[in-house]
Design a protein around this nucleic acid. Structure first.
Length: 439
RNA sequence: GUGCCUAUGGUGUAAUGGUAACACUGGAGUUUGUGGUACUCUCGACACGGGUUCGAUUCCCGUUAGGCACCCCA
């Protein structure tokens, strides 16, 4: 008996079974309500890029695996966080997990080194990392970035990239920005430092956490980032790279700081700052909100030098410095700081019809206004005068153009000022001029 | 990849082992061609799948998604 019941139940349930389609984990839709922010960020990025004289470059969102494999020793980003794309044939394709290497690939592939140097390149676009999403962390996110490739090895360019990103964030009216900066040395001084650091930790192996014990031989710089309490205590006595830079690196960092002083860009030295990708060298930086509450306590932008990257990728020796801003994160902060002034240009004119003939005529008027550069709104789908005026009100229209049967017959139209309620009747043939007069 | 927390209309919140309430939003209207207030009506949800149970939105398990802490990072 219960068997019969259950199978009956199953049949009913099978009928009811719902299909739920969601966006993939860590990937979000940008709905119309949020587009104002995105528009602002895109526009500002373009504006800043233009005023700093960066040229736009776009690269595919997929690259062959080698582009990222060659960018250095193993890092989590290239090792664990890449999306592989199943294609029919030959090469393994991946969704790009970052944008510096693709830009460098394009630079090498197209011989951009033959152009006047350095190349100042700018981009915006999505990138993909397989990781656990959290607020301010997505599997697909967008960056606006700036790269200066080729030319001389000059601290000016470091400062210029930092300044550009800083000004972009300012352009978004984000407040209390601060640049954190460090240097991770070069091929000469970093190995020496790493040795020192490993020596320091050698006799403290028992005290540090499990993770750190594993990390010590592979990625010793990460120990300085550990949040384990005892590790924090131990790291207080650890040697810092910033104290062990070679003369060149030390001088270079000092020059960058001097430029930032001259430009009035606020910064603080963070000796524990390290980068996620291994091809970086020399000064590295991240831009934060000063004393940020936890909701927005993340790096808004970051970058550094990558003077060895071109060679790793099979190109000639090329100096490089670049950085990127996380667009989602910038928007998060804009929302948090409640930045206003993002209002979109509302339609000023609203078309109202009474009856079918008027509705037909309104479509023509709509197109005439549009050709004349007047953005009109409408509610063709509604019939009652009341609800149409209600919509006009909701749309914040300054004027409503009311066309009824009588007006169609007389070839006139009523212009209603929505603020004062004053109405005037004008000939339809003059509607464009009459509207222009009033807005 | 690991651990913990969460999941009710479009949004924000209720309640309940016997299928859900409120506010806002959306739609229609309050007599004939006039909005912003007020009032009326109305659309709309228990994330998905399985189990326990006479019966599950409620309890349990799994999945998915979101959040937090790791990992890592814009």
């Amino acid at each position: 008996m219960s068997k019969i019941k259950k199978s009956a139940k199953k049949q009913i349930k099978a009928k009811k079974e719902k299909i739920v389609i969601q966006s993939p984990k860590g990937m979000r839709d940008v709905l119309p309500a949020d587009q104002l922010y995105w528009e602002k960020v895109r526009k500002s990025a373009n504006k800043i890029a233009d005023s700093f004289n960066f040229s736009r470059i776009d690269t595919p969102i997929m690259e062959s695996l080698e582009v990222f494999e060659r960018t250095g020793e193993a890092t989590d980003i290239v090792e664990k966080q890449m999306y592989f794309v199943k294609a029919k044939g030959e090469k393994k394709l991946v969704l790009r997990p970052e944008l510096t290497a693709p830009v460098m690939r394009a630079y090498i592939q197209h011989g951009l080194a033959k152009m006047p140097q350095p190349m100042k390149l700018f981009y915006t676009g999505p990138l993909f990392r397989y990781e656990q999403p959290q607020s301010g962390r997505f599997r697909q996110h967008h960056q606006a970035g700036f790269e200066i490739l080729g030319g001389a090895f000059d601290s000016i360019y470091d400062a210029l990239v930092i300044l550009t990103l800083f000004r972009l964030l300012e352009e978004l009216r984000i407040k209390n920005l601060i640049v954190q900066i460090n240097s991770i040395g070069c091929r000469t001084c970093r190995p020496n430092y790493v040795k020192k650091l490993q020596e320091y930790y050698r006799n403290k192996k028992d005290k540090i956490c499990k993770d750190c014990r594993q990390r010590l031989p592979v990625r010793p710089l990460r120990l300085l980032d550990c949040k384990n309490e005892t590790c924090i205590q131990i790291k207080a006595g650890a040697p810092l790279i910033i104290d062990r830079l070679c003369n060149n690196c030390k001088k270079h960092l000092q020059q960058v700081l001097e430029h930032l002083d001259n430009l009035g860009v606020p910064y603080s030295i963070n000796p524990y700052l390290v980068r996620g990708l291994d091809y970086y060298n020399g000064p590295v930086f991240e831009i934060f909100i000063e004393q940020a509450p936890s909701e927005i306590n993340f790096a808004l932008a970051s970058g550094g030098r990558y003077d060895y990257l071109a060679e790793m990728m099979g190109g000639g020796k090329t100096f490089g410095i670049g950085g990127g801003m996380g667009m989602e994160r910038a928007i998060e902060v804009m929302k948090f700081q409640q930045l206003s002034g993002l209002a979109k240009g509302e339609p000023k004119v609203f078309l109202v019809h009474i009856g079918d003939e008027a509705k037909k005529k309104n479509l023509v008027i709509f197109e005439e206004l549009r050709k004349a550069g007047i953005k009109a709104s409408e509610s063709f789908g509604k019939e009652s005068l009341k609800s149409q005026l209600h919509s006009a009100d909701k749309a914040n229209a300054a004027l409503s153009l009311i066309l009824g049967q009588k007006e169609v017959f007389e070839e006139t139209i009523i212009i209603r000022n929505m603020k004062t309620g004053v109405q005037e009747t004008v000939p339809i043939s003059k509607i464009v001029d009459e509207v222009k007069k009033r807005i």
